Simulated scan of single mutants.
Amino acid sequence: MSLDRYYTLGRSGLRVSRLSLGTMTFGEDWGWGAAEDTARAMFDRYLEAGGNFIDTADMYTEGSSESLLGKFVEQAGVRDRVVISTKFSYNAQPGNPNAGGNGRKNIMRAVEGSLRRLRTDYIDLYLLHTWDRLTPAEEVVRTLDDLVRAGKIRYAGLSDTPAWYAARAQTFAEAHALTPLVNLQLEYSMVERHIEHEFVPLAIELGMGITAWSPLGMGLLSGKYRPSQAGGEGEGRLAKVTAAPGFERFTERNWRIVAALEEVARESGRSMAQVALNWAANRPGIASLIVGATRLAQLDDNLGALDFSLPDALRARLDEASAPDAPFPYYMFVDRQQTRIHGGVAVGDKPAGYAPPVWVDAVEARDVRASR
């Protein structure tokens, strides 16, 4: 599965690569990014490999990410070929509450800034970056629909929102014939699997492909940390953010996962990063993985993650090592409980082809009537 095999994103006709190039590291404004020449080399290498899906946001490296990406796309003359995804939510003017958040006023302000930095007159995929706890889903959906109708964006989606909010937004769009959401961008990796409880079923049911950010667990699964070599806490981005609430990665559970990953990588003859990415890319509901790097060698290794199939036995070991806890109410839905609900009888979805599509039924009914 090389990068020049494309799949539709969610319930849409937008074709994207299974690995998306993350540009959060484009620019050095945050102290750990890539300089322009390195960023350009990674951009070129990704396109050479057949990739077409590039992720950024207006706040990445204080706007440098969008600016560099826009420059690279323009110079390479590939605007029609690439699918650019960017995001809004974070405040651009401290002290001005309407220069951030997800209200119509800020969305309209933010999209113009992104278009200018990206040197384009349209954005392929525009995402709400983070839930602001204030703006009604209806306001967000209507504003995104207006942007589609105005030709400023082609598709829309959400990132880092509660599942109930995403469900309300999508069902509101469906009920009012507004532009449907085609994407959920969420954190997902072997060390962060909580989206499996709610978001994965939601995305599959409502037609939103999931793009996974941090599929290497902020670098914990990259191969830099190896229990067999007493891999320490290291430096870099992970060491800088791991103390932040929700970003703790150096836990006993996670070290067990890293140990299992190291063993599987050794037995499969692949790097730890490649195995971790391959595992995540083949999980239910996952449309694309966002891979970012600060060095070309890192990106090269990541781009080889889809060129092999992980044996079932090895995949099962990773599944078991990383299995998430099932808090209430999800432990009520396990097989043992379902057996009691259904009286001990095996009950499941109909097999493929069990019932023909409705339109086939209608045709057959018409033919029956005509033969009488």
Rank of each mutant, 00 (worst) to 15 (best):
N302V: 02
A297I: 09
A352D: 15
A287Q: 07
S309F: 09
G292W: 02
I341S: 03
D307V: 06
D367C: 11
G348L: 01
G348A: 13
A323G: 04
R366W: 11
A352S: 12
K350E: 13
I290V: 15
D335T: 08
L303H: 02
S322A: 15
V347R: 07
L299K: 04
K350P: 05
M332L: 15
K350N: 12
P327C: 06
S322Q: 06
N302C: 15
G344T: 08
D307T: 14
L310Y: 09
A355H: 12
D325N: 03
A362L: 14
G292H: 03
A287W: 00
P356C: 08
P357G: 07
R336K: 12
W359T: 10
D325P: 00
A365T: 13
R295Y: 07
L289I: 12
D301E: 12
R366F: 14
G353Y: 10
D319Y: 04
D300T: 11
W359H: 13
D300K: 13
I341W: 07
A362C: 07
D325Y: 00
F308M: 12
Y330N: 00
T339N: 09
A287H: 03
T339I: 09
S288I: 11
V334I: 08
F328T: 05
V347K: 03
R336W: 05
P356Y: 11
R295H: 12
E364G: 08
L318V: 07
D301P: 04
L296H: 04
K350Q: 09
P327G: 02
L310W: 07
D300S: 11
S288L: 10
W359N: 12
D335S: 11
G304V: 07
Q298K: 01
P357S: 09
D319C: 08
Y331W: 10
V358D: 11
A346P: 06
D367T: 11
H342S: 07
Q338R: 10
V363R: 14
R366C: 09
F328C: 02
V334C: 01
G343C: 07
K350A: 14
F328H: 06
A297W: 04
A323M: 09
S288C: 13
I290L: 15
L296T: 04
A313P: 01
R340N: 03
V334N: 02
A362N: 10
R315G: 09
V334E: 01
L303F: 10
D349E: 14
F308W: 15
A362P: 01
L296V: 13
G304W: 04
